[in-house]
Write a protein that binds this DNA or RNA. Structure first.
Lengths: 123, 123
DNA sequence: TGCTTATATTAGCTGTAGCTGATATGATGA
DNA sequence: TCATCATATCAGCTACAGCTAATATAAGCA
C-alpha cells in the first residue's frame, strides 16, 4: 500500500500529525480522544486507522501496561519526500532566479554560485 | 479534495509523472496510450483520471485542433511539500547529528536545543 | 458531405474502504 | 476474583471510487 494512499485519508493524516506533535510516544487513547472529537467517529474506527498506520510503517507501538504507546515513524514520509524530488524544480527554478539567498536564510557568505544547476537539460 | 487523496491512486500518480516528463505539454492520447498499456484500463478511464487531475489543479489543458494538450501544474505538489515540512526534522536531525559537517563541508557547532516544546498543553 | 480520429461524457456495475455495534483481550485495582 | 479501564478485533453494512460500454462532440480529411 503506497504512502500516498495511506495519507489520502484525512483521519490518518491527522493521526500522523498528532503523533508527530511533541516528542516521542503518545498513548492510543490520547490521540484517539482527539480524533473522535474532531471527526465524530468511534473508538474502533480510530483503532483500525492506527492499525493501517502500523502495518504500513507509519507508526510503531510499545505496550506499557494496558496502554499502547505509539510513535510516528517518518520513513514513509521520507519516501514521499523523495518522490516529490523531481518536481521541486517546478517551484525551485523560480526561487533560484528571484531570491535563492533570501530563501536560504541570508547565509550567503560570498556569492560564488558558479554552478547553480548540476544538470542543465537542453531539451 | 486533498492532494494526497488525488495521488493516492497509482494511475493518477503515473499520469503526473508522465506529464512532468520532459518539458511542457503532452497530448492526452500520448499519456493515455502509455497508461492504457501499463494499467490495462480503457480510454474513458484515463480521461476520467485526467479530469480529476484537472479539477484539482494538478494539470491544465489547452485545445490544439482535435488534441488536448496537458501540462502539469506543480502547485498541489508544492502544497504536499509544505505539509511535509514539519516532518523533515525526523530525517534531518539524523543528518544534523551524524554528518552535518561532512554535508556542509565545514564544522557547524550547533547549540543544543534547550527548549524542545514550545507549547505545553494547557487545553 | 461523410468517414475517421481524438477526446470527453454518461449511465450503470462492482469491489472495497471505512464505519458501527458487539465482543475479545489483557492489565489494574478493590 | 471481579469489575473496570484501555485497546484491539470481528462481522456486517453502505457509500462511493474507479471501471466499462456506449455515446457525444468536434476537428481533420477524402
Amino acid at each position: 500500500m503506497h504512502a500516498f494512499e495511506i495519507l489520502g485519508d484525512p483521519v490518518r493524516r491527522r493521526i500522523v500529525e498528532l503523533l508527530a506533535d511533541g516528542e516521542g510516544e503518545h498513548p492510543a487513547g490520547e490521540v484517539g480522544g482527539v480524533i473522535q472529537r474532531e471527526f465524530g467517529i468511534s473508538q474502533p474506527a480510530v483503532s483500525q486507522h492506527l492499525r493501517v498506520l502500523r502495518e504500513n510503517g507509519f507508526a510503531t507501538v510499545r505496550k506499557a501496561g494496558a496502554r499502547r504507546l505509539y510513535t510516528v515513524d517518518a520513513a514513509p514520509l521520507q519516501q514521499i519526500d523523495q518522490w516529490l524530488g523531481p518536481y521541486r524544480r517546478f517551484w525551485n527554478q523560480r526561487l533560484d532566479a528571484l531570491d535563492v539567498e533570501v530563501a536560504r536564510g541570508k547565509r550567503a557568505r560570498r556569492a560564488p554560485s558558479s554552478t547553480p544547476d548540476t544538470e542543465s537539460d537542453t531539451a
